[in-house]
């Protein structure tokens, strides 16, 4: 898509692409701990059935994945592997942090071997709180991520500019009104020079 490379995309085309992207997301499952089972229930069980949302849960490699669900405790020993697998994913990529451990360390907040939140090593788009979250909560996180993708300006994302002008201008306010959910301000969270979007928290509320 040369148009994207040059950073110029007509808005209607962007919309079209975004709809396409949001309904054909390949997810790399990153089962680490208890939450992996709930993620498995959301992805593999007939009751929750994530495929109806247009999410394909079975790529065996991060190189084909559009987003990753980090579900469970990230330990200091595991953190380099988590980072490396994230780097192997092609852009554009998104991260859902599932469960209290991946969000902030959870019940192991004082442990000597647990990384206190996966957001220390990767930029996180959606936080799903809970210990573990129910599969429904993860599904809502996916739906919220899809909403964000639909409102994204791909050109701006490619230029690593202001995160999403489309979203910034009109749709964020609309989404806020519709959902009445406060998106948390967290400017200090950016890891690289890349401007990071405000993360979504399932169920609203602050992150820290």
């Amino acid at each position: 898509m040369g148009l994207v490379d040059r950073g110029r995309m007509p808005a209607p085309l962007t919309k079209l692409f975004n709809i396409g992207r949001s309904y054909s997301m390949w997810v790399y499952q990153w089962g680490l701990a208890c939450c992996a089972i709930e993620m498995g229930a959301a992805f593999a069980s007939p009751r929750y059935d994530v495929m109806r949302l247009g999410v394909i849960p079975l790529p065996a490699s991060p190189r084909q994945a559009d987003f990753v669900v980090v579900s469970g405790t990230v330990t200091d020993k595991m953190a380099p592997a988590v980072r490396r697998l994230y780097e192997q994913m092609p852009e554009p990529k998104y991260v859902i942090s599932m469960g209290s451990c991946a969000n902030c360390g959870g019940p192991y907040w004082d442990s000597y071997s647990v990384t206190k939140g996966v957001d220390q090593i990767l930029p996180v788009d959606v936080y799903v709180p809970g210990c573990p979250p129910r599969p429904e909560a993860l599904l809502e996180g996916i739906v919220l991520l899809q909403q964000r993708i639909r409102n994204e300006d791909m050109g701006a994302k490619w230029r690593h500019e202001e995160y999403s002008s489309l979203q910034a201008s009109n749709t964020r306010a609309a989404a806020n009104d519709a959902r009445k959910k406060a998106l948390k301000q967290s400017g200090k969270r950016s890891t690289d020079d890349q401007p990071t979007p405000e993360p979504i928290v399932v169920g609203g509320g602050p992150i820290e």
């Binding site: 680490l32 701990a33 469970g72 405790t73 330990t75 020993k77 595991m78 592997a81 192991y108 004082d110 442990s111 000597y112 071997s113 647990v114």
Partner: peptide, 14 residues
Amino acid sequence: PGYMHRGYEKLTEV
């Protein structure tokens, strides 16, 4: 092993 070591035995002491 150890990629999921969370230090339970230490944490139970506190």
